[in-house]
């Protein structure tokens, strides 16, 4: 007799506990407003990442196609996984002095771990993090980018 009572008790206890759990799910069933699912990619137009979000390293250029990179190579040296390659060339200034300028600032997005060290250590704040995040491409070669735009040059204010 006792075992039957215990058995029934157990069944009722179980049902009660399950109903308690279902109470929580039931609450959200009738309160759809509290559900927080984002409808990506439908909400692409309104989706804004936080300002500090580390999406991709870029080199900002101003309206005269000028950047701040002095080809010093510090970012390349600080990158832990070789995602940055600096290719520099020697140019003659109007005064006839030899000067190192950037030829190609190569950035391998596919290798970058977004550690932010290049940006933190760049002495001329020439590179920043962009908030883009849709990086999927069909061809791996597209992940290798040249950050300085063609024909760009060092901004006037930054002459060494």
């Amino acid at each position: 007799m006792r075992s039957i009572i215990n058995y029934l008790k157990e069944i009722f206890g179980t049902v009660r506990a399950l109903l308690k759990g279902m109470g929580v799910t039931g609450y959200y069933f009738v309160h759809p407003r509290e559900i927080v699912t984002q409808q990506y990619p439908e909400n692409r137009a309104t989706l804004k990442m936080f300002d500090r979000f580390k999406g991709e390293v870029v080199m900002p250029h101003d309206e005269n196609n000028e950047h701040h990179c002095t080809a010093c190579g510090i970012c390349e040296m600080n990158c832990p996984n070789g995602s940055i390659e600096i290719i520099s060339k020697i140019q003659l200034t109007p005064e006839g002095k030899k000067k190192k300028v950037i030829a190609k600032h190569i950035y391998h997005l596919g290798m970058c771990t977004f550690c932010n060290l290049c940006i933190k250590t760049c002495p001329s704040n020439a590179i920043i993090m962009e908030q883009t995040f849709e990086h999927a491409v069909f061809n791996r070669a597209k992940l290798t980018k040249v950050l300085n735009q063609p024909g760009s040059k060092l901004s006037k204010g930054d002459k060494k």
Binding site: F50, R52, K54, F114, C115, N116, K120
Partner: peptide, 27 residues
């Protein structure tokens, strides 16, 4: 993760500490 993203710029792999302090100040 949103709090992390706003302050550290990443959600999971934060890399927020640097020897001697933090990468950025808090947001």
């Amino acid at each position: 993760l949103d709090i992390f993203e706003e302050t550290c710029g990443a959600r999971l792999l934060l890399s927020y500490n640097v020897p001697g302090g933090l990468m950025f100040d808090i947001h």
